[in-house]
């Protein structure tokens, strides 16, 4: 027992089953496909919402309260920072989603609504990316909105009323909604 650490380390490495990379590659492809479909769905949703909710668009434009960058390089840095924040939040959200299987209907509805808003913003951002003379201030505002929405989504998923997948399969599971993981 005194040499337990050494003895344990001397145990041989174990070989995983063959074909692991092929399986993983397929799952990576599937995930990439889901993301593409989600972008298309977001695009369609935006197109529909533009027809119905044009008056709300000014809300997504730069406002007087948003800091106006003075030089182009500085503006790009701000956008880059917002993009990093957005990516970090996406990862945090993915982690929370993987740990969360069941929650109540109100939270699920709120999260779905926030997710739709994020999809709308994504389409606007992708449109902006194709504009040669893209307005950096507009990009900044859109990315700032995206970060705020993701923060709300993370908060929704981290709400104390959530139960984990395994812990939530009890008697109250019938009253809860099962989310897509």
């Amino acid at each position: 027992m005194n040499d337990l650490s050494r003895s344990l380390r001397e145990l041989p490495e174990l070989s995983p089953p063959a074909g692991g990379w092929a399986r993983l590659s397929q799952r990576l492809d599937a995930r990439q496909g889901r993301r593409r479909r989600a972008r298309w769905a977001g695009g369609l949703a935006l197109a529909a919402s533009l027809l119905l909710a044009l008056p709300q668009l000014p809300l997504l434009r730069p406002s007087a309260s948003d800091p106006a960058p003075s030089r182009a390089p500085a503006r790009s840095a701000v956008v880059a920072s917002l993009m990093q924040q957005s990516q970090a939040l996406e990862q945090e959200l993915a982690t929370l989603k993987s740990e969360t299987g069941v929650w109540n209907g109100a939270l699920a509805s709120n999260a779905a609504s926030l997710q739709r808003d994020v999809a709308l913003l994504d389409l606007q951002l992708s449109d902006l990316a194709f504009e040669p003379q893209a307005d950096q201030a507009a990009a900044q505002t859109l990315w700032r909105h995206r970060v705020r929405l993701l923060e709300q989504l993370v908060s929704a998923h981290a709400a104390p009323t959530l139960t984990t997948t395994t812990a939530g399969l009890g008697s109250d599971a019938s009253e809860a909604e099962v989310l897509e993981l």
């Binding site: 145990l11 490495e13 174990l14 070989s15 995983p16 692991g20 990379w21 399986r23 993983l24």
Partner: peptide
């Protein structure tokens, strides 16, 4: 793919020692 092949044995060994079930360890590896 290169990263997977480089570390798959180490990761699998860790998982196999922690969960002691070959099938579960293979799933967790993925």
């Amino acid at each position: 793919a290169l990263i997977y092949r480089r570390y798959e044995r180490a990761v699998y060994t860790l998982l196999r020692r922690m969960v002691d079930c070959a099938d579960t360890a293979a799933d967790l590896l993925q």
